[in-house]
Design a protein around this nucleic acid. Sequence first.
RNA 1: GGCAGGGUAGCUCAGGUGGUGAGAGCGCAGCACUCAUAAUGCUGAGGUCGCGGGUUCGAGUCCCGCCCCUGCUACCA
Length: 506
Amino acid sequence: MAKFYLTTAIDYANADPHLGQALEKIGADAIARYRRLRGDDVHFLMGMDEHSQSVVQAAEENQVPPQEWVDRMAVRFEEFYQRLECSHNDWIRTTEPRHRRAVEALLGGIREHNPDDLFIDTYEGLYCSGCEEFKQESQIADGRCTEHPTLDLVPKKEENHFFRLSRHGAELVRLIQSGEFQVEPAIRRNEIVRLLEDGLQDISISRSRFPWGIPFPGDPDHTVYVWFDALINYLSATGFPDAGYERLWPAQLHVIGKGITRFHCVVWPAMLRSAGLPLPRKVWAHGYVQWEGAKMSKTAGTAISLESALERHGPDSLRYFLLREVGFEADGNFTWERFDERYVADLADGLGNLASRSLAMLVKYREGVVSTTENTTSLDQAGLDALEQYATRMDVLDLRGGLEAAWSLVGRANQYIVETAPWTLAKEGRGAELDTALGTLARCLYRLALMVSPFMPGTAARLRDALGQDEASPAAWESGVAPPVEGSRTRRIQALFPKEQRAKTI
RNA sequence: GGCAGGGUAGCUCAGGUGGUGAGAGCGCAGCACUCAUAAUGCUGAGGUCGCGGGUUCGAGUCCCGCCCCUGCUACCA
């Protein structure tokens, strides 16, 4: 059994999760479920990033101590992700002792293997006395801090611990181009390679006067810079540095958003190399969910609440829509109109109706019992083709492509029903042909349940149940070749995607 | 500004190395069917392939110029 360790980015504990974060978790979960379906020993990690400045601010605004705040947020996030049917095996939080130990150990590893990679230098920047922090260009407007436009920004120097990132650029280019360290999709890889070729600057990895963080080993006046801290979560969750962490590390896949590729494809691998540790196999940077064609923004009031998106048509439908319409590669658009259109066309009238009509005919004409018939009709062949195409796409993390393959089979199945017209066969007493048609449809639904299961676990379970499959024995990918439905007792099914719900619009 | 990727039917997009009538899905219009969530199937309407030049017997498909969009441009999650 191949080990497959995958992670998502950990979220800041400063506000409820939004649709964009949901996309990332759903996509990663579909990958995790697909790998399990293919027989891998999957370890799927999600969690919280709890040491940032924004977390402290959020805690202050809510008038609770930071730890109490992050405890509260961690519960909220995990509840949301459970409602999204995320199947993570572990949930890491950067305020946990196991994480602190790993951060200390990783820094220790760098000290041991490449002591020159750590040094003290001065960080120079524009300091806002109102915020009590250094400001980045993006936070400055007209030479003033956007939060405190009445105050002057003052140039200030601070002694910090630095990491010699510049030393690792050339080797990272080699590792990326040789494929030893994969950055996907290609557009993100190209951006990173160019960045590396232009040369890297060393980065400061500690902050003074910021107590909410992990104390810098050997220098208690400093805390570890939040990004340096956060990246290490992927390693913390393996049990590092305790013996046995190699059972999980290196990760097969880090799933992240395109906005943080630099940290994951440059800083993180450099940290690992410096500490003498192996690199993750692959980083996948997905795009963003846009709203009406524009970036979603809470301040602009265009952020859709995850709550309302979940309530619209339920978690399976949201998962389907995001991965089919928005996709997991480039940016994609979310609108209620498209969500409703896809819900009706693809789910209710597509998969849902196909299941209804097929199962209804099995019950009506054969009391639900699937006869033994040859697994060789044109629709069986289409099913095998779809499975192959599906796997080809899914193996390269083309989730939308996987769904397209499955839905092409939905279309073929509806054509098959019209071509064979089982109602006519029943009327004319052509029993053998009727058995063949109905058996073929049962196999087709079984294959669809298989392909749909990583995306819509609840729907797949209901389909399998209606097909008389025993849930105690989980479906194996290989069973799609010759679905074990013969002799099964199938049942009529309640609408998988009822349309009445659609009236309940916002 | 630099680098990268795009602008093809109302919408979302396919269209390696140029070659008979430019495609898919959704939506729309007709027809058919009745097993089904008034579902499904078939047929059809719909396109200056961003703009202007050029190469070629022949260009969404190559070259030049221009217009527009998006992403990246380092210590920000």
